[in-house]
């Protein structure tokens, strides 16, 4: 399995750490309430198909990457720096 790091290029999966769904980028406000926090920390769309998930190029440049990927075929469709996405979202 190969993942493309936006900084380093295509690398072997061994160089990456996988965390989970990219929902992790959308951290609720501290006072968002129990349901919002439960959804953020626990609940998952868990699609059989295209998903966006978070990987870190841990053995490379340390970049956290949002990878768009198909969970059925393992096709990797896109990857982008999480920091860029976060900045665009106005974090």
């Amino acid at each position: 399995m190969r993942i493309t790091c936006p900084i380093c290029g295509e690398r072997d999966r061994r160089e990456f750490y996988y965390q989970g769904a990219a929902i992790a980028l959308a951290r609720p406000a501290p006072d968002a309430g129990e349901a919002a926090w439960d959804a953020y920390v626990h609940l998952r769309d868990n699609p059989a198909g295209v998903t966006r998930d978070l990987w870190q190029h841990e053995s490379g440049c340390s970049a956290w990457i949002v990878v768009t990927r198909d969970t059925v075929t393992h096709e990797v469709l896109d990857s982008a720096l999480a920091a860029d996405i976060g900045m665009e979202a106005g974090a």
């Binding site: 750490y17 965390q19 992790a24 980028l25 951290r27 340390s62 956290w64 999480a82 920091a83 974090a91």
Partner: peptide, 19 residues
């Protein structure tokens, strides 16, 4: 280390900090 990078890059990219 991974967690701090996550917090910085994914949650607080606005902060000018290097780890």
């Amino acid at each position: 280390m991974r967690h701090l990078e996550f917090v910085h890059q994914c949650l607080r990219p606005d902060l000018d900090v290097a780890l």
